[in-house]
């Protein structure tokens, strides 16, 4: 079965190759890219396209690798022992399954999303090496080995906040989602808002790419911001002509709040607008 994008997700050719390679070879796929280019969406859409259950594991700075496998709930057991509950004799009652275990035991080959792996501690990926390689792990408390029935399709996303260890990287396929080019972007917009006024899209894209080209922006607007902005433009029923006016007083695009996300950037824009006005 091949992944070729879905009706809600436009995949570029290189992304398709990377996804298919990792699916066929049963190796994890590491996805990096600018924020808002659809890294997390990819896992959801792959699961949809391959008709596989999706298991999401969102990583935080406090997440430990062990939590993905299982946790031993010592506190409940302690409580039960003090209350004289019978359950206490079987340690298996206090093993709480993690996401990886869940993925390993799925009846159907699942898609496991490990989201934002770079948020965790530096050692986190190293602690998962063997588990991802062999797709099995050992539960010390019950002396049992849990082995994957179907090797899950693992998609890992990273925002590049920490470097990942080499040993971990060697086991993955890697894909960097580049910022989409104009025509790909048009396709993406078409997928999200089919039948949107062509003229409005063309003008909006002009404005959008112009903003991205402004040097010195702290946070460049990305795909997801463009999509939000278009939604607003539609809701407000903004005339394409308004976007096209090169009236210097209106250099700041309408509803810019969706595109520019911090006050320095808005200031920068206002300064540029002011300078442009003065030059006239």
């Amino acid at each position: 079965m091949k992944f070729e994008g879905t009706k809600d997700y436009v995949a570029t050719e290189d992304l398709m190759v990377a996804v298919n390679a990792s699916v066929a070879l049963e190796r994890p796929l590491l996805i990096k890219g600018e924020p808002g280019t659809g890294k997390t969406m990819l896992a959801i859409e792959v699961a949809k396209a391959l008709d596989a259950p999706l298991i999401e594991w969102h990583i935080k700075s406090t997440t430990k690798a062990q939590q993905g496998l299982y946790e031993y709930d010592a506190v409940s057991r302690l409580r039960d022992s003090q209350l004289g509950d019978d359950r206490v004799h079987d340690i298996g009652n206090y093993i709480v399954r993690g996401k990886l275990w869940e993925a390993f035991e799925s009846d159907k080959r699942p898609v496991l999303l490990i989201d934002e792996i770079d948020k965790a501690d530096i050692e986190f990926p190293n602690d998962l090496l063997l588990e991802l390689d062999r797709m099995e792990f050992f539960v010390y408390e019950t002396k049992k080995t849990i082995k994957a029935e179907h090797r899950p399709i693992i998609i890992i996303t990273s925002n590049n906040e920490k470097e990942l260890p080499d040993a971990f990287l060697r086991r993955c396929f890697f894909h960097y989602i580049r910022f989409p080019e104009r025509d790909v972007m048009e396709n993406i917009v078409e997928v999200h808002y089919p039948g949107l006024k062509r003229k409005l899209v063309a003008e909006a894209l002009n404005v959008f790419f112009e903003i991205r080209d402004v040097p010195g922006l702290k946070k460049k607007p990305s795909t997801s911001e463009l999509i939000d902005w278009l939604k607003l433009l539609m809701a407000e029923d903004v005339d394409p002509e308004t976007l096209r006016t090169r009236d210097m007083k209106k250099l700041i695009p309408p509803l810019h709040g969706a595109l520019l996300k911090n006050e320095q950037d808005v200031h920068l824009f206002e300064r540029l607008a002011f300078m442009a006005k003065r030059d006239k």
Binding site: D14, V17, A21, L164, F174
Partner: peptide
Amino acid sequence: YYLSRSALVKDE
């Protein structure tokens, strides 16, 4: 090209 890039390069 895409495949080899995905398999061999791990850092943009």
